[in-house]
Design a protein around this nucleic acid. Sequence first.
DNA 1: GCAATTATGTAATTGTATAACGTATATCAA
DNA 2: TTGATATACGTTATACAATTACATAATTGC
Lengths: 136, 136
Amino acid sequence: MENSLQARPDLTKNQSLVMGALAQANAPLSAYTILDQLRDHGFRAPLQVYRALDKLVEFGLVHRLECLNAFVACRHPECEAQEIIAFTICEACGQVGEISDDSLARRIKKVAKETGFQSKKSTVELRGICQACHAI
Amino acid sequence: MENSLQARPDLTKNQSLVMGALAQANAPLSAYTILDQLRDHGFRAPLQVYRALDKLVEFGLVHRLECLNAFVACRHPECEAQEIIAFTICEACGQVGEISDDSLARRIKKVAKETGFQSKKSTVELRGICQACHAI
DNA sequence: GCAATTATGTAATTGTATAACGTATATCAA
DNA sequence: TTGATATACGTTATACAATTACATAATTGC
């Protein structure tokens, strides 16, 4: 457990089910929505979902969107490498995009450092209208 | 109501009480913590707090921290001018700092625009250790 | 005064997340 | 093979966060 950047471990049954639900949806899902979708597979309680989500987030396979209290499957197969990811959340269609821009990451780090702050974890979430919806 | 950038209106009794609780604390407070602190002043239900908070956030006097489900009094008397504010949240002492850096704001806007995303509202929250706590 | 708007009070409910149990399963060293 | 440890799982209850619905006051503008 010395490195949080582990090769993707085999998922347990519950983790696979939750991952599957998120991968199929192309929008974020709340824990309780996932629970409802998995009742047929034997899920009965929120904790089953939350425990799986905790692990999936730890593995870097799932992201948590703070401003929605919801979760999305990661789009970048290798996104664990990215330290700072910005999420774009479309308020029309609900789709979430991931932006990992080095210059943005560097600037955030720099701005924080200027005030003496040592950043461990960042949340960058933009809400607005995506390109596709704006074209309509 | 044509301009959200209004001169600070007089606060109502409930709004003043909630604002006072937040101003006195030098860390974010949850709505329910505020409720408990104001029970002596006649507060009985969460909605009284949430309604006041909604207005205070609208006035730009209070910020909501998504990753904490909590609220802080704004430090910048004139921060309404800032479009994008980054918050630094110290995991040791709980203090919250506000960073309004133009270059950061511009870069976020730019990065979003490159993907065709029209950003309306942004959340930038950094968790880590503040200068004071790091010195200890 | 009267209408419209805004603020308030209260109860009930919905949504989100964790605590505290106990049990099962896998892994590994002795 | 046994026992120790760690991890995963199942269930219930509870805590925490936010909103819906409805009734009542207070304020504002005409």
